[in-house]
């Protein structure tokens, strides 16, 4: 039997909401796939498109950026900036031919542990049929 492909996901989680949300999922003993490598950032607005490209470059099969719901940002408007920037990057990645499923953004609040597990489950399910990401990956 061949082993099933396990995608590697890099998740940029905002410290105030999504990261706390993932913590909640953890302390509540909710089960979700272990494919995620979480990276805590201070705000989703601090995620430079270069971080995302770099994650793909260094071998991520999927990248998730997660922040507070609009209006809930700890820094008032960081997630609005992020929304705009990510929309542009998403279009660009789509334009050069990367599968659009590989890049996701979500709003997860500190209370939404369940939503966090759902987002990850869905993401892993979407990535599995796509296989490994080799397009932007650095060779060697």
């Amino acid at each position: 039997m061949t082993e099933e492909f396990e995608p590697k996901i890099v998740a940029f989680l905002c410290k105030w909401c999504s990261s706390a949300g993932s913590d909640l999922a953890g302390v509540s003993r909710m089960e979700y796939p272990s494919n995620v490598i979480p990276i805590q950032v201070l705000c989703s607005g601090s995620v430079s498109p270069l971080y995302i490209l770099s994650a793909f470059n260094k071998g991520a099969d999927g990248v998730l950026v997660s922040g507070c719901h609009p209006g809930d940002c700890h820094y008032i408007k960081g997630n609005y900036y992020s929304r705009r920037r990510i929309a542009l990057l998403k279009e660009l990645l789509n334009f050069i031919g990367l599968e659009p499923e590989r890049f996701k953004m979500s709003w997860v609040s500190a209370a939404e542990g369940t939503k966090y597990t759902e987002v990850i489950k869905e993401f892993v399910d979407e990535l599995k049929p796509l296989g490994a990401q080799t397009k932007l990956r650095r060779n060697g």
Partner: peptide
């Protein structure tokens, strides 16, 4: 090192996409 200097395909992609984003 965000982008390697060597002109390999993967690095060229990152370079040109970063440039495109910076010019958005």
């Amino acid at each position: 090192k965000w982008v390697e200097k060597s002109p390999t395909t993967s690095e060229n992609f990152i370079y040109h996409m970063v440039r495109a984003i910076h010019l958005a």
